[in-house]
């Protein structure tokens, strides 16, 4: 079941790549997608305890979060622009390292959280050990923002709904 859905996904990507729909190239696409599925399908969806249906539900819930993330990326770029173009000797820059605990269980949720922290204004995830994140923050205002756990709850609502 997982293999079939991976095959369909890869074939969809092939169609975007290819742009030619004659029989010869479509056959090549089918062969290629099947070949990649054969040799490396275990790389997608490492944790297969949940069914395909649950996975699809998770994917459906994802876009809203991604849109919110896009807005955050815009904010972080404006933040960088403002800092970079501020005159004088960069009054606002006050770097510090912070350790934060997270309640997320799954690896994928942690990955999502770490990348989201990297993309939101003023913070970068340096390291992740167990459930502890080491974060570098660029100014005092953003250090305060790290303690806020709204992002974590958003991710938990997507990937770990049954736990909460």
């Amino acid at each position: 079941m997982y293999r079939l859905s991976i095959f369909l996904l890869l074939f969809g990507i092939w169609i975007i790549f290819s742009g030619l729909f004659d029989a010869f190239h479509t056959t090549l696409g089918l062969i290629s997608a099947a070949f990649v599925t054969l040799i490396s399908s275990e790389f997608f969806f490492a944790d297969r305890s949940a069914g395909v249906g649950a996975r699809i539900q998770q994917i459906i819930r994802l876009p809203i979060y991604l849109l919110w993330m896009l807005y955050q990326i815009l904010l972080s770029n404006i933040h960088i622009l403002k800092l970079a173009l501020s005159p004088g000797d960069l009054e606002e820059v006050e770097p510090s390292l912070i350790r934060v605990k997270t309640n997320l269980k799954t690896d994928f949720g942690k990955w999502m959280l770490a990348n989201s922290i990297t993309l939101t204004p003023g913070t970068i995830t340096i390291d992740i050990e167990g459930d502890e994140l080491l974060i570098h923050s660029i100014s005092k205002a953003t250090s305060a923002g790290v303690e806020d756990d709204s992002m974590e709850r958003k991710i938990a609502a997507i990937f770990e709904r049954e736990n909460s």
Binding site: L10, W14, A33, V36, T37, S40, S41
Partner: peptide
């Protein structure tokens, strides 16, 4: 997540 797409 990237390796299968690179192979494709």
């Amino acid at each position: 997540l990237m390796i299968p797409i690179i192979q494709l």
